[in-house]
């Protein structure tokens, strides 16, 4: 099955980034396809390479980058939501790209299911 993923909440502040990551990993392991992960609202904060959690904590941003590198998952940050929150190309972590909201709608059209992670 082909999944589109929408993440609406920021990392560390909220469970949605963790749940979405676990979901993506489990889906890929079971042979499903992640069409795209779209970061919206405060979810765009998943994409900043300035993130530096304590050593003993999970690194949410690097975890996404690794998922993109190993499985070619398309990580898309909403340009408008990103600009509002200071997420731009200069501080974008590896594996992410910035694009428009059309990418979310497009993924909805193309995927069998869209799963939202947020409040």
């Amino acid at each position: 099955m082909k999944f589109g993923i929408l993440i609406n909440e920021g990392p560390y502040n909220h469970q949605s980034a963790d749940s979405a990551y676990q979901f993506c990993k489990a889906a890929i392991e079971r042979g499903h396809e992640i069409d795209r992960v779209f970061f919206y609202h405060d979810g765009v904060n998943n994409a900043t390479k300035l993130t530096e959690p304590p050593q003993d904590d999970r690194h949410i941003v690097n975890r996404w980058s690794k998922l993109a590198e190993e499985h070619g998952v398309d990580l898309v940050v909403c340009v408008a939501a990103g600009l509002r929150r200071g997420i731009v190309d200069d501080n974008l972590a590896a594996g992410f790209r910035i694009s428009g909201l059309g990418q979310l709608v497009e993924s909805g059209i193309r995927s069998d299911r869209v799963v939202t992670f947020g409040d």
Partner: peptide, 20 residues
């Protein structure tokens, strides 16, 4: 108007109408 970017289609999905 700021968020109208990115509406270009990567592949031809014209004709696909889903219920959103």
């Amino acid at each position: 108007t700021e968020s109208t970017g990115g509406i270009e289609m990567e592949e031809d999905m014209s004709g696909t109408v889903k219920k959103f």
